[in-house]
């Protein structure tokens, strides 16, 4: 459910910050699913997976935000539609 919401957010919002947030929600949802799996099977694997997801999310967000910062300096609007100088 969270995952779907995140997906909807990803598809509807053009603002880059929002896209990143939506991705974050999706990752969180996956993590939740892993923990649920871990709960169901009574094993710690899923929880460990969640730890990894957390770490990866942190790394991803930091790189992503740095990228956006840099982008913002050039295009203050921060709208992914402006990022279309190249033909899609």
């Amino acid at each position: 459910m969270l995952f779907t919401l995140g997906l909807i957010g990803l598809l509807t919002r053009r603002n880059l910050i929002f896209t990143l947030m939506s991705v974050e929600v999706m990752l969180n949802a996956s993590g939740l699913a892993f923990v649920a799996g871990s709960y169901q099977w009574g094993r710690p694997d899923g929880q460990i997976m969640f730890l990894f997801i957390l770490a990866m999310a942190a790394a991803e967000v930091s790189v992503g935000l740095a990228l956006f910062l840099q982008f913002h300096r050039r295009h203050p609007a921060l709208d992914s539609d402006t990022a279309s100088e190249m033909r899609g």
Partner: peptide, 18 residues
Amino acid sequence: VLAASSSAFLLFGLALIY
């Protein structure tokens, strides 16, 4: 943006398999 969301897809898929 696309790779991050694809990772999310992948993870969710892995979680479901798990």
